[in-house]
Write a protein that binds this DNA or RNA. Structure first.
Lengths: 191, 191
DNA sequence: GGTGTCATGTAAACAGTTACATGATTTT
DNA sequence: AAAATCATGTAACTGTTTACATGACACC
C-alpha cells in the first residue's frame, strides 16, 4: 500500500487534515489515486495505529471540526527508509493496445477513427497535465535539489504522454500503406 | 472488466482451455494481467452465462480432462463492438515518481544510487519485453493489417520503456549540476 | 431554495494478486 | 525421491472506485 507512504510524504511538508490530503492527491500529477475518502481515512487510521502520525481535533469557529495529522519522527524514519528502497517497475496499463490487437475485425474507416480518438484522448491528457503543472505544487521546494526533482517528475509525465502521442501519429502515418496491403509481405508473424 | 474482452479476443483465434488462456496472457506483452487462475476461470464462467462462449469437456488419454471454450457469434459481435468503442486513456503508475518526490530526505549518494537502480530496472523490463517479442505471438496474423497492428503494439511497448530510460538518463546527467546548488535559483516552485 | 464548500466517515462493489488444494503424469 | 507440467478450481486478501450519509454554513 503505497498511499500510506504518499501520505507520509505530504505530511512531511506540513500537518493537515484528511480533507486537505484528498485535495493534494487529486491535484497531483504523479500520485495516481483518485483521492477517494475511503482510502485516505483508512490509511490515516493505520498510520495512527503504527504511531507514524499523530492526530489532533481542531475546533473551528464554525463547524465542522477537523482532525489535523502530524508526522512523527518515527513516521519520518519510515518515509526515509521507503524512499531509499529498491524502486518498483513502472506499470503501463493501456487497454487501448488490447483493443487494437483485435481491431482486425474493424473496417478501415473504423480503425482510423479509433486511432484518431485515441490521439484526441492523449492530447486531452497532455493539456490537463500541463494545466496541473501550471497551477504549481501546493508546497514550496525545501531545497534546490527538491525543486530539481520536482521538475524532473513533471518532465517524466509530460514525456510519457508525448511519447504516446508520437507513437499514435506514427501509426496513423503508416496506416495507408498498411491498408493497401503492401506491408508485411516479407514479415512472417509467427516463428 | 476488460479481461473478458481480452479472453474473447484470444478465443477469436482458436478455441482453447482456461489453462491455455492463462499461458497466452502471461506470455503477452500488452495484456498486463498476471494471468492468475482466479480471474480467468471466473471470467470464463461469466462469458458462458452471457452466452458469449460455449464450453466443452474434452477427455484426454491421460487425465486431467480439460474444458475447451469456443467463442460464439454473439461473442464475436460483442468483441467487435468493444474494439470500436471509445478508448480509455492509458494509465501510468510509477510509484518511483512518488519515491523521488520525497527523496530530498536522501543524501546525494543514496539519490544517485536510487536513480541507477531504477535505470537498471527499466533495462531489465526492456530486455524481457524484447525477449517476449522475439519469441513471437502464439498466433499467426490473419491479415496484413493485423500483422501491422501487432508490430505497432510491440513498438508502443518498447518506446514506452525507451522513453522512460531516456528520461532517467537525462536526470542522472543533470544531477551533478543540481547537487552543486547552481540550479533552480531563478525557478520559484509555487505560483 | 438550490448549489457548492468544508469535513468527517461508511457501504458496496469491482479489480487484481498470492497462495492453496487436488491429482495424475513426466522429467530430473 | 523431488520437482515440473497439465489442468481444474477456491480462499483470503489488497487495492481502488463510486456512491451514499451527515450537518453547518455561504453564496446566488
Amino acid at each position: 500500500m503505497t498511499i500510506n507512504h504518499a501520505i507520509l510524504g505530504i505530511l512531511s511538508y506540513r500537518p493537515m487534515s484528511g480533507y486537505d490530503l484528498k485535495k493534494v492527491i487529486q491535484d497531483s500529477l504523479f500520485m495516481h489515486w483518485s483521492g477517494n475518502n475511503n482510502q485516505i481515512y483508512k490509511a490515516l487510521l493505520e498510520l495512527l495505529e503504527e504511531g507514524l502520525v499523530t492526530g489532533e481535533v481542531v475546533h473551528q469557529e464554525n463547524p465542522p471540526s477537523k482532525k489535523i495529522y502530524t508526522i512523527t519522527s518515527g513516521g519520518l524514519d519510515t518515509l526515509k527508509a521507503w524512499t531509499a528502497c529498491a524502486p518498483e517497475p513502472a506499470s503501463f496499463r493501456k487497454s487501448f493496445l488490447i483493443q487494437l490487437a483485435w481491431a482486425d475485425l474493424l473496417c478501415d474507416d473504423a480503425l482510423r477513427e479509433l486511432l484518431r480518438s485515441y490521439e484526441e484522448e492523449i492530447r486531452l491528457q497532455l493539456v490537463m497535465a500541463r494545466e496541473k503543472i501550471r497551477r504549481g505544487s501546493a508546497f514550496a521546494a525545501r531545497s534546490g535539489q527538491e525543486a530539481f526533482l520536482w521538475r524532473m517528475i513533471n518532465e517524466n509525465v509530460l514525456s510519457s504522454y508525448q511519447s504516446e502521442l508520437a507513437w499514435v501519429e506514427r501509426v496513423l502515418g503508416q496506416l495507408p500503406a498498411a491498408l493497401s496491403g503492401e506491408v508485411c509481405k516479407d514479415e512472417p508473424s509467427a516463428d
